[in-house]
């Protein structure tokens, strides 16, 4: 009745939306190309789409720096994100659920949490390097740190705000404490846990690029930074577009996962950060 986005007309209207989006993008690209070709924009600062495509081809075959192809950059960045993000989810969700379901613990822990997540994550990089060296570990841990607090606080908040009537209903139906946790509190928390995970994914991209800008040899962030040394704005644009494509793809994947896992949930609009 209310799953209107799955009806034939719903699918049609989404396709039309997609089409409009593509047409808009193509139009902007064409305008850009036109402005550069006719001398209205400086190609040095605003490399036109055709030039960016050429550059992408070069990075794919020759690599930038020579030998390091776009695939290695993408792989390095995506792997760092996935490692840090997965760690943050695996630890953040259970810890958040545990803390949120115990009032005393919640009161004791939350001030620490508020402080820890107020620390600007990037500013921890030098400290991470001092503790864990300049290798992969400190990069991944930084992503982990940035994501963990968001996932954990959202999970804790999710349990805290469960409507007490769900618990009461389960109690009058004879469910035990364990049954209530796994069959009521956990599913009731999932929509908000997911919204925390979505915010964290965006943050993961933010932090990894910052880390790679400062210290890394491979990765889309370091590609952009290296290009700067040679004043290659077309190369920077390639890195930038790759980042947005993969950021978008992962976010869409997460949305899809949510739709599959939580067909019953309406998407949450308000999000805790």
């Amino acid at each position: 009745m209310r799953f209107s986005n799955l009806t034939p007309t719903g699918i049609a209207s989404r396709l039309i939306d997609l089409l409009i989006g593509i047409v808009t993008l193509v139009a902007i690209g064409a305008l850009w190309e036109y402005l550069v070709q006719n001398g209205h924009l400086n190609p040095y600062f605003f490399p036109p789409p055709t030039e960016i495509a050429d550059e992408l081809e070069k990075i794919t075959t020759v690599g930038f720096p020579r030998g390091v192809t776009i695939f290695s950059h993408i792989q390095a960045t995506v792997l760092r994100i996935l490692k840090g993000y997965a760690m943050a989810a695996v630890l953040g969700i259970p810890i958040g659920l545990f803390v949120g379901s115990r009032q005393f613990l919640d009161r004791a822990v939350m001030p620490v949490v508020t402080f820890a997540r107020s620390v600007a994550t990037i500013s921890l990089l030098p400290l991470m390097v001092a503790w864990f060296g300049v290798g992969e570990l400190s990069r991944v841990l930084l992503v982990f740190y940035g994501c963990f607090w968001v996932i954990m606080t959202n999970s804790a908040f999710a349990v805290k705000t469960i409507h007490p009537q769900y618990i009461q209903a389960a109690e009058t139906l004879g469910a035990s404490k364990t049954q209530i946790f796994f069959q009521v509190m956990l599913p009731a928390s999932l929509p908000r846990i997911f919204s925390g995970m979505k915010v964290a994914l965006g943050l993961a991209f933010l932090y990894i690029v910052a880390v790679e800008l400062i210290n890394a040899e491979e990765g889309l962030g370091s590609l952009i930074w290296e290009a700067r040394t040679f004043y290659r704005s077309d190369t920077m644009m390639v890195g930038l577009f790759m980042l947005s494509i993969f950021g978008f793809a992962l976010a869409q994947g997460l949305d899809l996962l949510e739709k599959v896992l939580l067909p019953w949930a309406e998407s949450l609009e308000e999000i805790e950060r």
């Binding site: 409507h163 009537q165 769900y166 009461q168 209903a169 389960a170 109690e171 009058t172 139906l173 004879g174 469910a175 069959q183 009521v184 599913p187 009731a188 999932l190 939580l262 019953w264 949930a265």
Partner: peptide, 27 residues
């Protein structure tokens, strides 16, 4: 509370993540 006393709330308090059959089978 116990399953010998069934309770119906003002706002159904149905579990939104369970279907009709799932809600009924919960107890």
């Amino acid at each position: 509370p116990g399953p010998d006393r069934g309770m119906v709330f003002q706002h159904s308090a149905l579990f939104p993540w369970l279907t009709t059959a799932g809600n009924i089978e919960f107890g």
